[in-house]
Structures are given as C-alpha cells and as structure tokens.
Design a protein around this nucleic acid. Structure first.
Lengths: 195, 195
DNA sequence: CCTACCGATCGGTAGG
DNA sequence: CCTACCGATCGGTAGG
C-alpha cells in the first residue's frame, strides 16, 4: 500500500507541471494547460509562483541536488575505482527511477532556464561529471581500467544512464536495482582490462 | 578545401531551420526567428513551405532514411555478430557526426510531429532498433555475447551513441572514425563473455 | 482563487 | 518575396 503524503497546493502545482513539461516540453506547455490540470484559472497560478520559469528552475535544481547527494556519499568511501563506479552508476540510476518525470525535465528542459540560472545549472552539471571523471581516472591510474579518455568514457556512460527515463516501466520485469546492476556491468566490463 | 554546393532557397531554409530548432527547440523557435536568419519576412517563408511542421517533418524523416541506409548495408553482410555490431555502431556514429544539428533535431524534436506522421516516425524508430536487437540476439545465441535482455542492451548502446551530438567537436582530437571505434569497443567489451 | 484584462507574439493568409 | 493583416494564444497583472 502506498501512503500518499498530503501535498500543499504549491507541491501539487509543481508535480502537475513536471508531468506537463515532460509530456509536451516546457516551451509548448502553457500556463492555461497547467491551470487546467489543477482545475483552476491560469491567473490563479500566480498566487503560488512568480513565473513559469520559476517552476522549471525549481524542478531542475531540486533534481541536481538529488544527484549530488547520491554521489557525495560514494566519493568518500575507501573502495576500488570499479566499486566506486558501480555504486555511482547504481545511485544515479536510482535517482532517475525514483523521479522519472522530473529527471526527464531536468535532462531536456534545462536549456530554457534564463541567465543567471542557466550558467549556474551548467556549472553544477560539469561538477557532477567531474566527480565521475575522477573515479575513472583513478581506475586508469590503478590499471583497473583500459587507457581511455576519461571524459569521453563518462559522457558515454552517463548518456546511457540518462536514457532510462524513456523506457523505464515500473511494472517491467527488471527492478530498479537490477537495472542499475546491469548498466554498471555493461559499462564497467566495457572499461576493464581484458586478460 | 570544402566545395560548397549552391543551395536552393528551400535548402537554405531547411538548413537555417535545423540550426534554429537545435538551438532553441522547435516549440520555442518562431517563424519570425527563421525569417530573420534568412533576411526575409516571415510571410515569405510560406512560398517555400506549407507549414512550420513540414520543415520539422522533412528534417526528421530525412535523418531516419540516412540511418536506415547505413544499417541496411551492414545487415546483409556475412560476418560475426560482434563485427556486425561494430560496423553498425560506427555507421550510426558517422551519420550523427555528419549531421550534428539535424541529428539533434531528429532525436529531440520528433515528438512535436502531428499525427499521422508521429506514429509513422515512431514505427520507423522501432524498426531501426529491431535491426540492432537481431544482431545482439544472434550474438547471444552464438555465445559471442553474455546472456542479456537484447532490447535493454540496444537501448543502452544507442543512447550512448545518441549523445554524441552534444559534445562532438569537429576540431577535437578524436576523428569520427576513432569515436565510432572507441564507442564500439566500450559497448562490445561490455557485452562480450569474459574468459 | 476569481474576473477582467493587457500588450506581445504566434502561425498563417490574401493579394499583389 | 513584400505589405498588410487575421484570429488565437501567450505569460502575466490589477484588484478584489
């Protein structure tokens, strides 16, 4: 049984916006569409939010924080690079699966942010990627991984993870953990030195 | 030296639209933006095209055809599954790199197509994926590849290829072929059975 | 949260 | 390819 927390009107609004932005894209979603979903008038939305972009910005930065929290725990562990990478991949996967719609918005709609939020977002994304790059560079230095451009490898891995939201089915045969494990197996096998 | 073919006005229009849609997204791109790029009035666009959506549709289906042509050549070759997969990955990569902007539109903006084009597009995409799935299933049956859900593997591989347009730099240190080879190495290593 | 409304912009047409 | 223009819709505000 799922226990639904009671959501504030603002939380309901952001949830509805997340679904809407995912389905139609941010630019093609109108405030009237959103109001309609909530059963109120478009003008009434503005007693909860300042602007359309504020909603987008909240979604994007909330997700960014979720991803950071997940990787920050792993970074400090004292384990091999392969083990770190595996955990990072699983953690990333779990964040996506727990927030499929918000992840989709986070991944595709961020470019509609205005400045200065846009630059701030891009910087956070780069920081996040750098954490993965460090893990892979450590693995290369250790001879755990093949010699490869670490940034290239990270972009390849992250891009395969960032597609999950498109096909993930909560009723599918693979559990979130299994998906993470399969993805890390493919990725890490791809990097490991073959004897 | 690059020899520029003389483009018809309609080709110029579609080229400008491709860049515009890539940069701002289809929904956020206005016909006035497009006209501006070409130095004409918005109304004048309509002597070359029927609608905004027609431009999008042309871009999407032209790219779909390019991808199909690439894979159709490979499917019929009489080589191992790993070799087929390698060639398919390299071919896919080359198509993206030769058409970075159009690929970006193809990958992200297709959902703004109207019916019946939308369903037609989705069906083509599925056909294309199925060709990859067959290759991987052949490899699994052969004991070339680990036992894995073939569709899952394909979506993972394609998603990593479909990110290239985001970071590909024609002045970067990796050539298109090298990029394809590296990607296929990572993907195929990830699938191969380890002894 | 509503009514009433704003200026701006949208995709597109008529007619030349 | 242009001028002139259309109805529809956009994000958002004023005032209650």
């Amino acid at each position: 049984m799922i226990i639904e927390k009671k959501l504030s009107r603002k939380e309901q609004l952001e949830l509805a916006a997340t679904e809407l932005f995912k389905e139609k894209g941010y630019a093609a979603s109108s405030m009237r569409d959103l109001a309609n979903k909530l059963g109120i008038e478009a003008a009434s939305l503005y007693s909860h939010i300042k602007s359309k972009e504020e909603i987008l910005s909240n979604i994007c930065f909330r997700m960014a924080n979720e991803f950071f929290e997940a990787i920050n725990k792993i970074e400090i562990e004292n384990i091999s690079a392969s083990a770190k990478l595996e955990r990072a991949i699983i953690a990333h996967t779990q964040v996506i699966i727990k927030n499929v719609s918000a992840s989709s918005v986070f991944l595709h709609e961020w470019r509609h942010l205005n400045q200065p939020k846009l630059d701030e977002f891009i910087a956070m994304r780069e920081d996040y990627q750098n954490k993965f790059i460090s893990i892979i560079e450590e693995g290369i230095a250790n001879d755990e991984f093949i010699s490869i451009d670490a940034k290239f490898a990270v972009l390849t891995i992250l891009s395969s993870l960032n597609w999950i939201h498109n096909w993930y089915d909560p009723n599918g045969k693979m559990s979130p953990l299994e998906i993470g494990q399969q993805l890390s197996r493919m990725s890490i096998n791809g990097l490991k030195i073959r004897f």
